[in-house]
Nucleic acid binder design. Structure first.
Lengths: 197, 197, 197, 197
DNA sequence: TATGAATGAGCATTCATTCAT
DNA sequence: TATGAATGAATGCTCATTCAT
């Protein structure tokens, strides 16, 4: 990630998209204002670039995490761990996801980002579905609602987690995975532990 | 809630605090710009007023929901339902909670808001503690982590929920309550159903 | 004309629309920059307002000038005098007509301005037509081409005329009227002299 | 004319000097921005170069047009035709003359340009003077005023003329020449017809 | 000859806020 | 209570120009 995008990421994390000025970003990146525009179309373009980097990162981690297990329970546990580890590994990056709402509807890369996000949601939904079909999971209510419940809990990690706190990323990830397993009526999976990012 | 605060609430929901201009708010409220300042100290003052209204609402509902049950399981189920119903009852109001981070640290009412929020977290944490002590709940990991897991899942409702969707507020609330019960290793509570807000 | 529009008129005259900054205008008007925007939509809005004032002025003068004569020759002579007097009376105002090309095609008032301009052209063209029909005028070539020839000569006055020069506005106007009469093959009209503006 | 100057000419025609950015010019010319500065001192330098090319073109045509006739009437008619043909032959080139006002007063080539323009004006003024002396022309008012009248009418051609319209360049030129002859009280000259450029 | 990368200065416009009424 | 009018400061962005390569 370029110094400019790293600066944008950091600024968006601290102040939000609309609370961040392009001068903020330039100062953090140690470049002049016009240099920002030599490398990026607009402030919104920087946001989209950061969002895509974040989504690329989490998506590839989730894919890998799923591939490392062969039961729905193992896959869900691994996926939740991967998502939480993504959150804690780069809080600034992960937290910008909430700023997606400020991307204009007709932005060229918006649909692309949504497609990636949908792909990730579909990956987890697929696990849920297979776990239900196999009788490994037991939920009531809508499968999509359960999906949102799980992903919502994980998303919130970026709100409260601070590095150097009482719990390590690995501890948080394992705890969230175990809680998620219970939430879908499965036995907690303890066999595989993902390495911290 | 005054027309001005209702306008602010709506604007903050749609565009975020920094994305909302005072002209936005005045136009939505149908008043002139200076009228805003007759009733409120600043834009930030309007945000704080909205946040407090939201916290007052959810806190009183959660208190009432807890009082209606006498077991940790029943209380937790009711509390989750209350929180989710609060989210769905006034999406615009509930969603502004995320804008709290933009309240300046030395704002007079900031501590007050934090105290209310802490009170609500403590209420739910107390339920968890009593449920664990009684052997009704079974979690691993930190109790505060579990608390954040549950509240994070609920908070996210304001991100994806849209009125008029496939699921009614009551359905969502019951589904979230049931999932939360499983998440803490308790039997789903089906006896009490809160009325929609 | 408001101080702001007078400032804009003067600045557009000296530096052209694109060469004029809104700070130029504000400084000339003795107001702050935002005050400009309290009274006008945009820089372009100020240009349009100035253009319309100019067109209103010349159109009403031309209408009156035509009404004061009852032969095509007298009307043409008077109309040319009126146009030239308009040019010399407020050089800054008249010279902005050339900036019309920078008004965006979809500007709300653009069509309105064009309509007024067309009305003025039609007034003069009508005189030409009646003079030709009556045998008072003798041209070869297209009537519209002759119209453009006459109006083009008059328009150029704003390029070279400077107040306080060797010739008074009245002298210029009479000279232009006489030359125009010859250009359309009519006898110079010497009976009526318009008062200077 | 180099691709860069051709691009500048076209851009200045469409948007004016101040409305044209160097990026506009570079993009039209298909070169990078610094390449512009390898070939030209500044944006203003490009304007001056275009202006000189235009003046060189019209001046040589007018000189030749005058040389082809031996009476003031013939010379004036030919000169007007030459000027109008110059306008219609390269509208973009001719129309930039109006941007001369944006050349800074101390620009090295400014005086040179003014000298050429004065030479052209003097050529036509000389014709007028000789025609008056010979009793071929009859004007009232100032000779310089008549000069400006004629040149102003011609200059305006670049404002309204569009290639492919109802009238050919030759028709316009002849019509303008004939009108100009009448304007100076001379008989229209029909003997010599300049070839279109 | 050409250009990728950079920048100080400036652009039109909007910001939250105030004040006289 | 309310607002027309105003503004200092900042906004996102572009300008003409330069420099190292």
């Amino acid at each position: 990630m370029s110094p400019i995008l790293a600066a944008a990421k950091s600024a968006f994390h601290e102040r939000g998209f609309h609370g961040t000025s392009t001068r903020d970003i330039a100062a953090r990146a140690g470049v002049s204002l016009p240099t920002l525009y030599y490398h990026h179309e607009s402030k919104q373009g920087m946001l989209v670039a950061v969002l895509q980097a974040a989504m690329d990162a989490v998506l590839s981690r989730v894919r890998a995490a799923i591939a490392e297990a062969d039961t729905p329970a193992g896959q869900l546990s691994n996926a939740i761990e991967a998502i939480v580890l993504h959150m804690t590994a780069d809080l600034e990056l992960a937290s910008t996801a909430g700023e997606f709402r400020y991307v204009e509807h007709d932005h060229p890369q918006r649909a692309e980002y949504v497609a990636l996000r949908t792909e990730m949601e579909d990956l987890v939904e697929g696990i849920l579905q297979r776990g239900l079909d196999a009788g490994d999971f037991h939920i009531d209510g809508d499968i999509k609602e359960t999906l949102r419940y799980l992903l919502g809990a994980c998303q919130a990690v970026s709100i409260w987690y601070r590095p150097g706190g009482a719990r390590t990323p690995t501890q948080v990830a394992q705890s969230y995975a175990a809680t998620s397993m219970r939430a879908v009526g499965a036995q907690p999976n303890t066999s595989v532990v993902l390495a911290p990012i």
